[in-house]
């Protein structure tokens, strides 16, 4: 195994990972566990747990941690670069393509057309996340309280403060 193979593997994962987080993990399972056997299936479940428990995007966390497990610090760097390179390339290309279209009237219509779909996707994301995170009545109370605090404060309370308060409450409830 060399770092170049690792880079190529993570570029393949980066191209395939539409939607990020939860599409990345099956791809890592296929490419890193199945095709190359660089980590074991047991290590995979450890990595899923860690990717969710550390701050930042879950897909990127999973990729970086896998890289570290496979080839140490440089493995982590190579995996991170490989995973983000397709994303950077696509964004840069799209920005170039869109630059010529900003004034067009149909672009303004498109901007409005995209809003309901985005709102719908976020609702779907909440439902999916909520099913996993809200497992008992205490978690439900915490989630509802966080929602009420954010609504009632009219965006005066910082969301990170809400996450940290939830964590502190978690220590009292589950600790």
């Amino acid at each position: 195994m060399n770092l170049f193979d690792l880079l190529v593997s993570f570029m393949i994962i980066g191209v395939g990972a539409f939607g990020g987080g939860f599409t990345t993990i099956p791809l890592i399972e296929h490419e890193i566990v199945g095709v190359h056997g660089w980590i074991t299936a047991a290590e995979l479940s450890e990595l899923i747990a860690i990717a969710q428990m550390t701050p930042g995007p879950i897909g990127l966390n999973a990729a970086t941690y896998t890289g570290f497990r496979v080839a140490g610090f440089w493995g982590a760097i190579v995996a991170m670069i490989g995973y983000t390179l397709p994303s950077i390339t696509f964004c840069a290309t799209l920005i170039k393509l869109l630059a010529g279209l900003t004034g067009a009237s149909w672009m303004n219509t498109l901007k409005k057309s995209v809003q309901p779909a985005v709102a719908g996707l976020i609702i779907a994301a909440v439902l999916m996340y909520g099913r996993a995170a809200v497992a008992d009545i205490y978690a439900a109370i915490l989630a509802v309280s966080a929602f009420i605090v954010l609504i009632a404060s009219r965006d005066k309370v910082h969301p990170i403060a809400v996450i940290l308060c939830g964590g502190v409450a978690g220590i009292f409830i589950y600790g």
């Binding site: 428990m53 809003q115 985005v118 709102a119 976020i122 609702i123 994301a125 909440v126 996340y129 909520g130 996993a132 995170a133 809200v134 205490y138 978690a139 439900a140 915490l142 989630a143 509802v144 309280s145 966080a146 929602f147 009420i148 605090v149 954010l150 609504i151 969301p159 809400v162 996450i163 940290l164 308060c165 939830g166 964590g167 502190v168 409450a169 978690g170 220590i171 409830i173 589950y174 600790g175």
Partner: peptide, 23 residues
């Protein structure tokens, strides 16, 4: 582990808030 469980529940509320404001 307890901190992370509580934080995850708060994140669910946070996501619901953004979904609500965008909806």
């Amino acid at each position: 582990a307890a901190f992370l469980r509580g934080a995850a529940a708060a994140v669910a509320g946070l996501l619901a808030h953004v979904a609500f404001t965008m909806f």
